[in-house]
């Protein structure tokens, strides 16, 4: 799960990334990828690169390309000097417990314990 710390030197930039990624929707579930808990890490530590480590709700999902394109489209205008990289991982596998309360509400599962 993505965790941001205020002590992180890139905290401000990471918040901008999180805000922008709220616009990228998983077309299968109609919820944005942040509230779905698909984004695992945002990395600014490598020069000239911004690496988004994330997973997909279904392995080998054909809609993965659309999500990746969406990430590029919202981040490139915000960080024009960075090369955006999307790193897809399958570990840990995604499950609905990774969703934020807002994501659960949008899927109609707010009563899930």
């Amino acid at each position: 799960m993505l965790e941001l710390s205020i002590q992180d030197p890139y905290f401000h930039d990471k918040m901008k990334v999180v805000d922008a990624l709220h616009q990228v929707i998983d077309p299968e579930l109609f919820v944005n990828i942040i509230d779905l808990g698909l984004v695992y890490d945002i990395d600014f530590t490598t020069n000239d690169r911004l690496v988004i480590t994330m997973t997909l709700s279904t392995p080998h999902c054909p809609l993965g390309e659309a999500i990746e394109a969406g990430i590029h489209h919202v981040l490139e205008p915000l960080f024009p000097n960075k090369t955006i990289e999307v790193n897809i991982v399958w570990e840990p596998p995604w499950n609905f417990e990774m969703m934020t309360p807002e994501g659960r509400r949008q899927l109609g599962i707010e009563d899930y314990e």
Binding site: I25, P62, L63, A66, G70
Partner: peptide
């Protein structure tokens, strides 16, 4: 069909 028509426009 959505994937074929819109995958390159997502977020744009």
């Amino acid at each position: 069909v959505w994937n074929a028509r819109y995958k390159q426009w997502n977020g744009k």
